[in-house]
Design a protein around this nucleic acid. Structure first.
Lengths: 132, 132
DNA sequence: CTGCATCCTAGTCGATACTG
DNA sequence: CAGTATCGACTAGGATGCAG
């Protein structure tokens, strides 16, 4: 989400390896490995298209700053498409997933689903760990 | 990974909803939505079992502090099992995924795979965004 | 309504040094 | 080898105020 250590530029001959600190894929992972990003992908995946204020209500607890920042990151990465209807006042801005965004939103769906399903188990594990 | 806003305790009658700021599943997501966590799950999934120093070499660029901290978080959440062979000197400590850990590591695999596969595309999107 | 610019604090994280 | 403790730089992220 911010300045990360220098990563090598993309070399088509070198296979990607996300465990390698200098692999370019690390930069992409850093953008994705974020609470708000995962939630935004989930929300846009479910709703199809949403405006700014809808997204803020949808992602419970997000501030406008993080909302804008996260949207900008995803837009820059080509995962989210931003559309402005300039003829409207007050402005109407719509956000939706791009094709690439729908791809990754599909991959991260399992992560969110698993989390909801296993939350109770994790809570029990934490309690057991803290008891010891 | 650290103190998060107060979330409701678990109520078996209320369905989990990760978009809800007060849903307990948020706490779990916060632990998972982390670069080092995703990489560690990937590494342990591939290797089966690793010792501390192997993990540090495996997760390129991780500091000992983040290594310990991430391992502790995952151990507490019941995703990683830590085994010490006390009869050894120097100490031999092994880390492996629990059954629960293998579950989530399987879900996050797609995320890492997609990232490696689509890194070039994301880089192009970023370049296009920055050009404009 | 949709943002960006600022300020400010709490927390993150790396480096370093030290222990069993 | 496998950590922990501490310090200090940096950053994330909420709050607020203003603008198109």
């Amino acid at each position: 989400m911010a300045a990360e250590e220098q990563s090598a530029s993309i070399d088509p001959n070198r296979p990607m390896n996300i465990l390698d600190a200098l692999c370019p894929s690390r930069d992409v992972l850093v953008d994705l490995a974020d609470k708000w990003v995962l939630l935004m992908l989930a929300s846009l995946r479910e709703s199809g298209v949403q405006r700014y204020s809808e997204l803020q209500r949808s992602l419970g607890g997000i501030s406008r700053k993080m909302l804008s920042q996260t949207l900008r990151t995803l837009e820059r990465d080509g995962l989210v498409l931003r559309t402005v209807d300039v003829k409207m006042a007050p402005p109407l801005v719509l956000y939706e997933l791009t094709e690439l965004g729908r791809e990754i939103a599909e991959e991260t769906r399992a992560l969110c689903t698993w989390t909801e399903k296993r939350t109770a188990t994790v809570y029990e594990a934490r309690a057991a760990y803290d008891r010891r």
